[in-house]
């Protein structure tokens, strides 16, 4: 395993140390944060659109 780390740190990192799970976790957390913010923005825009619709009548 150490020989692999010396050979190429990316390969050793991914392959030997089990850090792939950490990378997966971080990426999923970022994705969840992005989804949450997009969803909130979507809802707020929905409200604004509703106001604009009643406004113009």
């Amino acid at each position: 395993m150490n020989a692999l780390l010396l050979l190429n740190s990316l390969e050793g990192f991914f392959f030997g140390s089990g850090k792939a799970h950490v990378v997966t976790g971080v990426a999923l957390i970022i994705l969840a944060g992005l989804a949450l913010s997009l969803w909130r923005m979507d809802r707020r825009l929905g409200k604004l659109e509703e106001e604009a619709r009643t406004d113009s009548h």
């Binding site: 050979l7 190429n8 390969e11 392959f15 792939a20 799970h21 990378v23 997966t24 990426a27 999923l28 994705l31 989804a35 997009l38 969803w39 979507d42």
Partner: peptide
């Protein structure tokens, strides 16, 4: 479709990082 895009990306992240690489000779 909005939720689907997020679910698809979650699948891509999990599958993309947990799938092993086929062995290959390097040196």
């Amino acid at each position: 479709w909005k939720g689907g895009s997020i679910l698809l990306l979650a699948y891509v992240i999990v599958r993309g990082f947990s799938t092993p690489l086929q062995p290959g000779l390097v040196s």
